[in-house]
């Protein structure tokens, strides 16, 4: 589609506007990378002397390293749990009766819409009562619920665009219902599941609001450690090393997933309505 409403000048202006916004959207995400490899304490964008000492601190200083390891474990725990539950939820909802499906979809999406602070306080009062504050599994379980929508959404979208006749074919060839799900449905969902898993992982790895309430004094996650550093004026340059690691992690995950999603040839999918049935 080409453009009709603007003249040549208008188009040129709009493209210039686009470049300006790229500065606004992308530069803040990248600016800490050069800062993190500067040797001295100052936050200059073009460092005088290069050094990896801030990365060394991140991986060797006990407090930073423990926080890093704890956050990695937490993100794995939460995103694995959320992926299992989210995939089951997406498949279940896609097969449920329309009214029920609608209600359930709202339920499963809700953790994304309700403010983190509200969910955090809810868990805090409950866990305080049950003496679960400061536990790894309770915090991981809370994170799993927070990130469940990130798995559920892409998997649901993929399910809608799938050809249901493949399931019928599997059933008529003698596959049991679970065999059909495992051998016919799940393989087609793989890219969506992977995308959801990665997004869930990244979100949990960055989450500070709920973690702050539930981790108690002894469990310090990476975002919590960063938060504290930033509140103290943000002068510890190790934080810039952390943000660079996060950036690399996110970009690698995203590149991995986009190449994955492009691999299967997308065919126009027939509508999934009842009239379609034999």
């Amino acid at each position: 589609m080409s453009e009709y409403l603007l003249g040549a000048n208008g188009r040129r202006l709009l493209i210039a506007y686009g470049w300006l916004l790229i500065l606004f959207i992308i530069v803040p995400a990248l600016v800490l990378v050069p800062v993190s490899i500067g040797k001295d304490d100052s936050f200059v964008i073009i460092p005088h002397e290069l050094s990896l000492r801030w990365y060394q601190t991140l991986f060797t200083d006990t407090r930073w390293r423990n926080a890093l390891i704890l956050s990695l474990k937490l993100a794995v725990f939460a995103s694995v749990l959320a992926t299992v539950a989210g995939v089951l939820a997406a498949i279940g909802v896609s097969r449920a009766a329309p009214q029920l499906a609608k209600a359930l979809r709202l339920l499963f999406i809700a953790p994304m819409i309700v403010p983190l602070m509200v969910i955090g306080v809810g868990f805090y009062v409950l866990y305080a009562r049950l003496r679960l504050l400061g536990g790894f599994v309770p915090l991981g379980a809370a994170h799993a619920v927070l990130v469940l929508p990130f798995v559920m959404l892409p998997v649901s979208a993929r399910l809608y665009s799938m050809d249901q006749r493949l399931e019928w074919a599997a059933a008529s060839l003698g596959a049991g219902p679970y065999q059909t799900i495992i051998r016919v449905v799940l393989p087609q969902l793989k890219p969506a599941i992977l995308a959801g898993f990665a997004f869930a992982f990244i979100f949990s790895f960055d989450e500070v609001v709920v973690a702050q309430f539930l981790s108690g004094p002894q469990m310090e996650t990476l975002p919590r450690r960063m938060w504290e550093g930033i509140q103290m004026g943000g002068l510890d340059k190790t934080i810039t090393a952390v943000t660079t690691v996060q950036l690399i992690l996110a970009v690698v995950a995203m590149l991995f997933i986009t190449t994955w999603q492009w691999r299967p040839k997308a065919r126009p999918a027939p509508a999934r309505d009842k009239a379609d049935r034999p």
């Binding site: 790229i22 959207i25 992308i26 803040p28 995400a29 600016v31 800490l32 800062v35 936050f43 997004f199 990244i202 790895f205 960055d206 500070v208 975002p223 960063m226 938060w227 930033i230 943000g234 934080i239 952390v242 943000t243 996060q246 950036l247 996110a250 970009v251 995950a253 995203m254």
Partner: peptide, 19 residues
């Protein structure tokens, strides 16, 4: 840029703005 933005740490980008 927009797609990557959705993947990036909110905490990190907020911190960038201080710098």
């Amino acid at each position: 840029g927009l797609v990557i933005s959705l993947w990036l740490s909110v905490l990190a980008r907020t911190y960038s703005w201080i710098i």
